[in-house]
Design a protein around this nucleic acid. Structure first.
Length: 165
DNA sequence: GCCAACGTTGGC
DNA sequence: GCCAACGTTGGC
């Protein structure tokens, strides 16, 4: 039996790495490196699987919004930047034989025709359970329920599910 | 740029 | 194991 598909929301500051940057990357793919939070690490290491759907969220922007869809193309594997001396995410105490930090690889799929601002999302009663709209929520890798996923795609002007197989 | 909320660190 | 101090996130 195959594990069922899951859904996630990934935050990125557009000044650092925007959804457009993802689409402009080779194969529209990137390693989601640099995450240094244990809860987010655990999701990537233990739960994110090839084929999972991803909502791409721009944080710390003028209008923080879900702006695009992506998919997971590689599950949890060690984040190489933890071993790169001088790199921003360098962690000298991480053992290469037992790495502390993990990443996944994602691939950009489609820009949301109708981007959904945080304000929009907060007004949407059917999305009240989303982690994103909870007060004080800072987690940069969040699980998203199947119901919320479908609703976000619908509100975002997406027909069907282009991240599905 | 401010600052509230949250996560991590480290002295005790 | 507590908790104050510190660092970071991210909306505003």
């Amino acid at each position: 039996m195959t594990a069922s598909r899951r859904y996630w929301l990934l935050k990125s500051e557009p000044d650092v790495f925007s959804f457009e940057d993802l689409l402009a990357s080779r194969g529209k793919r990137t390693g989601w490196d640099g995450v240094r939070n244990y809860q987010a690490r655990n999701f990537m290491r233990d739960d994110m699987q090839v084929g999972d759907g991803v909502l791409y969220y721009h944080s710390r922007s003028k209008t923080p919004s879900i702006v695009g869809l992506a998919r997971v193309t590689r599950g949890g594997h060690p984040d190489p930047t933890q071993f790169e001396e001088g790199a921003k995410g360098f962690d000298g105490s991480s053992d290469p034989k037992d790495p502390r930090w993990f990443q996944v690889t994602i691939q950009g799929v489609e820009v949301l025709p109708q981007p959904l601002s945080l304000g929009d999302l907060k007004e949407e009663k059917s999305l009240a359970d989303m982690a994103l709209v909870q007060r004080g929520q800072r987690l940069s890798v969040q699980p998203v329920g199947a119901k919320e996923w479908r609703r976000v795609l619908q509100l975002g002007g997406i027909k069907g599910d282009p991240t599905g197989s």
